[in-house]
Amino acid sequence: MRWYWYLTGVVVSGFGTTAMWLVSGIWVKSLTGSDSLAALASFALWAPVLLGPLLGTLADRVRRRPLLVVLNLAMACLLPLLLWVESADRVWLLFAVLVLYGAQGSVHDAAEQALMASVVDEDRLGTFNGLRMTANESMKLIAPLVAAGLFAAYGGGPVALLDAVTFAVAA
């Protein structure tokens, strides 16, 4: 039954993450009018992946389950800071959070993969990973619609809060 709760966390977290990834560039563009800065938002999210091997070693040095919980709770606490991003002069805060978001994602992915390999039986690991990937990828179909609608109606802050809630639920 534990796998059910884990997959629920993957679905919820995947939904929030996809929503935030989509909205971050749009948010920057709407505040600054700059296509270059909007593209930089995506770069800020993905740049920490370049340090993935270094960041991933953290997952090898500590207990993985508590690490995943702490990472999710840290993002749940960090994302509400984005409510202060209401003008172009505060876009720097969005970029800073996006870099931390990307770094958290690198550590989280490494810890998650290592934990699953040690918890799930080897003969069921392929099936489990298939379910996990299906759950995660299916959120990429639903989240953009919700995120775009939420952003259009209320701006980026509520999307950041939605993502914070998904991280808290996943923790």
Rank of each mutant, 00 (worst) to 15 (best):
F15M: 13
F15L: 14
F15S: 13
G16K: 03
G16W: 05
G16F: 04
T17S: 15
T17H: 08
T17D: 15
T17R: 13
T17N: 14
T17W: 01
T18Q: 15
T18I: 08
T18M: 15
A19I: 01
A19V: 01
M20T: 03
W21P: 00
W21H: 12
W21Q: 15
W21Y: 08
L22E: 15
V23L: 06
V23R: 01
S24N: 11
S24I: 04
S24Q: 03
G25A: 06
G25R: 07
G25I: 01
I26R: 02
W27T: 10
W27K: 02
W27L: 04
W27Q: 06
W27C: 11
V28Y: 06
V28N: 13
V28K: 05
V28A: 15
V28W: 07
K29S: 13
S30C: 00
S30M: 01
S30K: 13
S30W: 02
L31S: 11
L31R: 05
T32P: 05
T32V: 09
T32A: 12
T32F: 07
G33F: 01
G33Q: 12
G33A: 11
S34N: 12
S34P: 10
D35S: 14
D35L: 12
D35N: 13
D35K: 07
D35V: 11
D35F: 07
S36D: 02
S36G: 06
L37F: 10
A38D: 02
A38T: 05
A38N: 07
A38V: 00
A38G: 07
A39F: 04
A39Y: 03
A39T: 07
L40Q: 11
L40W: 12
A41V: 02
A41P: 12
A41Y: 07
A41D: 07
S42W: 04
S42N: 14
S42Q: 14
F43S: 13
F43C: 01
F43D: 00
A44D: 10
A44I: 03
A44L: 02
A44C: 11
A44T: 06
A44F: 01
A44M: 03
L45Y: 04
L45C: 05
L45H: 02
L45A: 12
W46G: 11
W46I: 08
A47T: 04
A47V: 02
A47H: 00
A47C: 00
P48A: 09
P48Q: 10
P48C: 07
P48E: 09
P48L: 04
V49Y: 06
L50C: 07
L50M: 15
L50Y: 09
L50Q: 00
L51D: 11
L51A: 14
G52V: 04
G52W: 04
G52D: 04
G52T: 07
G52C: 07
G52I: 04
P53N: 12
L54R: 02
L54T: 08
L54W: 08
L54A: 05
L54K: 01
L55F: 06
G56T: 08
G56Y: 04
G56D: 07
G56E: 01
G56V: 03
T57F: 06
T57Q: 10
L58R: 02
